[in-house]
Design a protein around this nucleic acid. Structure first.
Lengths: 188, 188
DNA sequence: CACCCAAAGCTAATGCTGTTAGTTTCTAGC
DNA sequence: GCTAGAAACTAACAGCATTAGCTTTGGGTG
């Protein structure tokens, strides 16, 4: 019998993929072991426990989502950049529901935690978008939190099926982007 | 030995209180049984299973949160009403983290589900707030979803400790309210 | 080329879940 | 006071994450 040849990153990637397929809450050590062709306890050679796995999936997802937003806003500014970033984030949440769900549930973490670093890094594209608007420097944190709250809230509600009439959700998302754009431009 | 004298609503209320204290994810049938002074299997006389319990807690929380918002906006309009509703919702999320967490995790539901009805009912105060702004009737759904997304996103991120510098979170929330208010007023 | 040891995988076992079946006990209404 | 029926109990099971200890594999070194 040949060996499976796993390591930490391959286990985490497989866990993220499996979570996207069957749902983050349904992700179990047994299911993941079966997926990678190994018995359950063998996973503990690569991952400390399930909490460690979950945090690692969240870290991966934040990095990927940030990269997607960064790529989407290349060469754009103002409303175009805002819309591109928003769409990239929402697409990521819808195409990778397991990864996205992993990012929403975690306890307070120390500032040098890899998960916290990935979160901060993933927000950089959003910061760049806000520089295209006239926000006073001391308000940039407020603006970032506001934009982040809105897009996260929308993606979160939609990805859990929280909107009633499915047909015009895309229109609602455009409307939200316009609302934010108007609010950011009409300061003072 | 006297009997505990439970019924469905008292079990659900106790579950909601316990979730607020120890966290929604830590809420187990065993912990709840101990809390109400009964052995674990006895709970199944009042509740179908844990999923049923969780949905019932979510329904209760949505009803309570909607009532809090409705009470908060009494006699107010415009920006005052918007701020009052936002503060009421965020206070609810922070004072009842277990209840609030119960509302975010559920699968797609049928339109006549009690949970869906409670969600729709709880949104009525927000609808009332939006009537104080000049939104075209065919855009009222978009506006409602936008406002809901923003406040839910902010409350969700804050209640899971997602903001880095704790000191000026209240300022950020005020800033968010202003952003929404400006966006809603500057249409066309 | 053979050895060897560290890592990778395995089996077995434990304790904690949610849940069901079957039994006993309390209590409200006649 | 008797009696249904509800409310609580004990016993048991399956699935979960996790740990301990054993076996095997394969890459680097002599």
């Amino acid at each position: 019998m040949p060996r499976a040849g796993l390591d930490r990153s391959s286990v985490i990637a497989a866990g993220a993929d499996l979570a996207d397929e069957i749902g983050f809450v349904a992700l179990s050590m047994g299911a993941l072991a079966q997926r990678v062709g190994v018995r359950t306890p063998s996973l503990y050679k690569h991952v400390e426990n399930q909490a460690d796995l979950n945090r690692a999936i969240a870290t991966l997802a934040l990095t990927e989502a940030g990269a997607a937003m960064g790529a989407a806003i290349q060469g754009l500014a103002g409303r175009d950049a805002l819309a591109a970033a928003a769409h990239a984030l929402r697409s990521f949440a819808l195409e990778h529901p397991g990864r996205y769900a992993a990012t929403v549930s975690f306890e307070p973490l120390s500032p040098d935690d890899p998960l916290a670093l990935a979160a901060a890094e993933g927000l950089r594209p959003l910061r760049a978008v806000l520089q295209g608007y006239d926000v006073a420097p001391e308000q940039s944190t407020h603006a970032l939190r506001a934009v982040r709250s809105m897009f996260h809230g929308f993606a979160s509600i939609q990805s859990t099926g929280g909107f009633r009439w499915a047909d015009d959700i895309d229109d609602s998302f455009e409307w939200l982007i316009d609302l934010v754009d108007r609010g950011l431009r009409s300061q003072n």
